[in-house]
Each structure stands twice: as C-alpha cells, then as structure tokens.
C-alpha cells in the first residue's frame, strides 16, 4: 500500500498469521526485481520467492530469529533503486554488526546499530554509515521523512557517518488513541547519488515510538524520591550509647 507522506519505496515485513509460519515482505511503491534476506547466522544473501502478494520468507529461511535484514533491488540503464529494512524478534541470535558492515557494493545506508526492542523513540539519535561501492560518502545528505510529516536532512561526517535525530512529531490525536505510548510511526531515510552516469537511490525504512517522557513527570518523580529519603532520616541520627 502506497504512503501519502513519502514517495519513496518502503518495505513492510509481517509475520504470517493463521497459516504456515513465516513472513511476508511487501513494497509500498513499484515493483522490485528481487528481494534478498541476510541474517547474522546466514550472512550469504538468500533470494526470496515472489508470490502474488509479495515475497515470502519460509520458517527455515527465518532461522533461529533475531535480526533479519531485507534488501529489495530494481535496476535499469539509468538507475538502481534499493529499498532496505530489517525485522527483529527476540530469539537466540548472533550480533549483526559483521553482517551489516560486510561489503555488498552499490549505494547503502548501513545502520551502525539496529533499532531493536522499541529503542527508536522521538528525540533519540541513531548513526548510519553512508557508502557507495564500500567507500564512505563524507558530506553527503541523508534525508529523513516521517509519517508525522517531518522532512529533515542530515550531513555525513568525514567518516561518512550521519547521525539522525528523530523529531517529536506524534500528534496528540495519535497519542490519545487506544495504542497510546505504544503508537508507532514509520520513517524512511533516503540517499541519492550519481556515479558513472547512473543514478543510485537507496532507502531504509523502519518505525519509531513516542518519547517516553511524554507521559512521565520528572518533577513528581524527584519529589516522591525526596519524600522517600525523608522517611529514612530518623535512621541517620547518631544514637547515644546507654552506658556512655
């Protein structure tokens, strides 16, 4: 299903429900030539089978779980479009750093750390390595678009690393809905680069959650903590010894 807030292609991964265990990958815009899956346990890319309703991941391909990295690619004479995302579910898993940083070629947005356990929240900062044919791209602009309507650009440093700060753009309607602080909004990072007369466009999409401090009061927390300390004050008095 296409998005109204971004024209970029987004990959959406869902666990199969009510059928054989597995996953389904769909693209929001356009078609892709192929979608591959990489996991830290099986870093060699596995080409996924395409069905009428997207690409399917079998239980065997899912492996033991943990970090699953998806790359969708389409290519013609003028451009190479690549959409990436990842899926995480808690399970016995290996560290994904090596898999993510392994040379792949093409234009890439490599998360230096994957956002798991709902760690991506408004106001949090995440770092991404921008590279083309495994060479970092210092000074390049990484564009962030969110479902909340934010569009922002971040420049990569001398090592080709861009630090993305997630905006506070959840609307009150969204937060007051049933899901509350568990609400999610999608975001997409896009990187554009021209090399050898060919245009490369790569995206990375995932979701983020509201800032936890939206429903918390630090002042009340400090006050109650201080009250707890006051309750302990009688214990701190130095007692005179009876036979002193």
């Amino acid at each position: 299903m296409a998005t109204t807030w971004s024209s970029d292609a987004l990959l959406r991964v869902t666990m199969s429900r009510g059928e054989a265990p597995g996953m389904r990958v769909k693209a929001s815009v356009g078609d892709f030539d192929q979608v591959v899956l990489q996991t830290p346990e099986a870093p060699a890319p596995v080409v996924l089978a395409q069905g009428k309703d997207g690409w399917t991941v079998s239980k065997a391909q899912m492996g033991t779980g943990g970090h699953l990295w998806f790359i969708a690619t389409r290519e013609n004479e003028r451009e190479v479009v690549r959409a990436t995302t990842y899926f995480f579910f808690p399970a016995r898993h290996q560290v994904p750093t090596e898999m993510l940083r392994a040379p792949r070629g093409g234009l890439e947005i490599v998360p230096l750390r994957l956002q798991e356990h709902g760690g991506t929240r408004e106001g949090s900062r995440w770092r991404f390595l921008l590279r083309h044919d495994n060479q970092p791209l210092p000074g390049h602009l990484l564009t962030l678009e969110t479902e909340g309507g934010t569009r922002q650009q971040f420049m990569a440093d001398a090592d080709g690393v861009a630090e993305v700060s997630f905006p506070r753009d959840f609307t009150s309607e969204r937060l007051n809905a049933k899901e509350g602080m568990n609400a999610r909004q999608e975001f997409v990072l896009s990187l554009d680069h021209v090399s050898g007369g060919k245009r490369f466009l790569t995206t990375y999409n995932q979701s983020y959650n509201p800032d936890r401090m939206r429903e918390r009061s630090l002042a009340l927390g400090v006050g109650v903590f201080a009250l707890g300390m006051v309750f302990a004050v009688p214990l701190l008095r130095r007692k005179e010894k009876k036979n002193a």
Partner: peptide
C-alpha cells in the same frame, strides 16, 4: 526517575511506591 502520570492508576501507584522505596 520520572513517574508515569499519563498511564493507568495501577502504573501510577507502582511508580510512586518505586520512587518512595528508591529514595
């Protein structure tokens, strides 16, 4: 340290107990 004032009463109660206890 911040207490969840926007959550349900049960969470708020636990938050107050937690901060009192920690203090």
């Amino acid at each position: 340290l911040a207490i969840r004032t926007g959550a349900d009463g049960f969470s708020l109660g636990l938050g107050i107990v937690a901060n009192l206890l920690a203090g």
